[in-house]
Design a binder for these strands. Structure first.
Lengths: 137, 137
DNA sequence: CCTAAACTATACTAAATTTATAGAATTTAT
DNA sequence: ATAAATTCTATAAATTTAGTATAGTTTAGG
């Protein structure tokens, strides 16, 4: 399941993707437009900025705008930024690999292979969902 | 990501699936064989029993055994029993449907459709992984 | 240069969930 | 009767999540 943070991030990106080119959206505008607690959204937008998905303009008349092309921002990207690994266990993850604490022998683990198969299929599906594809729907 | 509970449940089922037909495994035996904290495993086995995946025999020489055919126990089943919904949001779930608290209009939600697509693909993949397929690997 | 309006940064808190552990009760074979 | 096992309920510790608070910085415009 997605955390609220990830869901809010996606909703915020969808909001930004629906604005006119060159439009800058204030946090409060996004918060009200997408039903997201404003203070929480501030954090999320900063994270999205650090991830180079959005850009910002500071000071009066400042705000946020989409930095990356909406065709290139995928569900997988946002999931990884906020919720981390796509794989079902860290030992089956590409970007967040970690050995299981209870693992005796990774090479002999019966679970791992199956979970890597799932990871590949889920990842492919999640990379197929972009902000643009969601807006078009 | 899977919770430890779900991971342990899968490891316990894999352990049982590898025993001889008619063999009954004590909790301590499964715990040591699959590196699972014994007391935690007790709870998990009870849950698996309530889900009709395993059967038990009480008293001396008692223990647990696979109740369902290992070909029919899927990753999706165990995920649902312990971690709940497969979908990324409750509003996109088949078995754990719930409206989002921040949802203004479900029919106009841009996220939901994409998440239902992901759910269908993930579910299909997870239903393709069975205890038997994991053991065979 | 002052002020209002906005983003930025860090710390904190409350609630929920997860990961167990403890202990007593019950069941069964011998 | 006893030992060995499951069953049940409660509790505790740790972690994560969701959200709030507060102070600081930046910028446009008068």
């Amino acid at each position: 399941m997605l955390s609220h943070k990830t869901k809010y991030a996606l909703k915020a990106l969808l909001y930004l993707a629906q604005q006119d080119e060159n439009h800058i959206s204030r946090t409060i505008e996004i918060a009200e437009g997408a039903s997201i607690p404003k203070k929480f959204l501030e954090q999320i937008l900063l994270d999205l900025k650090r991830g180079h998905f959005v850009g910002s303009k500071q000071g009066k008349y400042g705000g946020y705008y989409l930095l990356k092309d909406k065709e290139t921002i995928t569900l997988a990207d946002i999931h990884r930024l906020f919720d981390g690994a796509i794989a079902l266990l860290p030992c089956a993850s590409l970007n967040f690999y970690e050995r299981c604490s209870d693992c005796v022998s990774e090479s002999e683990c019966l679970l791992r292979h199956g979970l890597m198969t799932i990871r590949d299929e889920t990842l492919k599906a999640m990379q197929g969902i972009t902000i643009a594809s969601l807006v078009k729907k």
